[in-house]
Design a protein around this nucleic acid. Structure first.
Length: 300
DNA sequence: AGTTGTCAAGCTAGT
DNA sequence: ACTAGCTTGACAACT
């Protein structure tokens, strides 16, 4: 079971800008920023290795404006060396990475322009992972999208759009249950039609579920993964930030809450011979991962 | 140096 | 009607 964190490492300082405004776009700025981001990513991966962290979510901002018209540079070619080096490091160390495109990626949107932009953005994510020569276990996770007042119609829209995307992207794309619109059960309905694997977010599942037993949820979601090609089923973990609005992530690890889920996963794992990878969506990032690794190793 | 308004992109629920 | 929140605040202009 690998445990990881998303996008940012709070221990390492990034001395340069990681992105810029569209207004500030220039080839020079672009090249400097991408170079800096890739160098920094490699530093994070080294940090992770040193701390026995083998799962990490790559920021979508590594190549700024990659899917925007303004970006006409062949960054895959220009940064081939860096991309290869990062990919080799990940593969050599049996690491896994994933990505989570932001909220503007809506495959089931009723606006064709939004869909078009979404596919461009997904292509960028797919190209980035592809150019690092990563395995198909490097997933791109998105939410199902909007409801638009008719969930069934919107689910079907997702299914139709998904069937039309190209195989390379398909081999990486996965959906995640969200906390307000599409529950695990909704995702399973979509999986039945498409075969798309499901990332199971346990916190979202607390917020929105269909009263299923937790064990049944684990069984059904893990079955959507073809372990040999997709890798271990991914679980997203976070907990409620106390006193804040429902769905807001906690700033630091809720020890008891995490242990409950970890033990459930561990038990399921040994019974069914399924291994999971857990993504900790906690504001203090690698610090919480290191705490959980110590907890598992030393039991305290 | 520190503060603050704004940033490519969508959608939902809460106020 | 407006805003917080979302996987992650951070850039850039201003004081």
């Amino acid at each position: 079971m690998r445990i990881g964190y998303p996008c940012i490492n709070t221990s390492l300082k990034n001395p340069n800008s990681s992105t810029f405004r569209l207004k500030s776009y220039s080839e020079k700025r672009f090249n400097e920023t991408v170079k800096n981001n890739l160098d920094h990513l490699l530093r994070i991966l080294h940090f992770n290795k040193k701390n026995n962290i083998f799962f990490f979510r790559l920021s979508s901002d590594i190549i700024p404006f990659a899917s925007h018209q303004i970006c006409q540079l062949n960054w895959k070619k220009k940064f081939e060396t860096e991309l290869n080096e990062i990919g080799n490091f990940i593969l050599k160390n049996n690491m896994r990475v994933s990505m989570h495109p932001d909220q503007f990626v809506i495959l089931n949107s009723s606006n064709e322009k939004v869909v078009e932009n979404s596919i461009k953005e997904l292509d960028y994510h797919s190209n980035l992972l592809q150019n690092m020569n990563l395995l198909n276990d490097a997933k791109i996770q998105i939410h199902v999208g909007g409801v638009y007042g008719d969930k069934n119609a919107s689910k079907n829209k997702f299914i139709n759009r998904y069937t039309k995307i190209h195989e390379c992207l398909k081999s990486r794309l996965v959906i995640e249950n969200d906390d307000r619109s599409y529950s695990l059960k909704d995702c399973l309905d979509i999986n039945k039609e498409t075969g798309i694997p499901i990332v199971f977010d346990v916190f979202h599942h607390e917020c929105l579920n269909d009263y299923e037993f937790f064990k049944d949820a684990l069984t059904s979601f893990s079955k959507t993964w073809n372990y040999s090609s997709d890798g271990n089923p991914i679980v997203d973990y976070s907990s409620q930030s106390i006193g804040d609005r429902r769905g807001k992530h906690a700033k630091t690890l809720d020890y008891t809450h995490f242990v409950f889920y970890y033990k459930e996963l561990e038990r399921f794992s040994s019974e069914k011979s399924v291994d999971f990878d857990i993504m900790l969506e906690i504001k203090d990032k690698e610090y919480s991962v290191i705490r959980t690794l110590n907890l598992i190793k030393f039991g305290s």
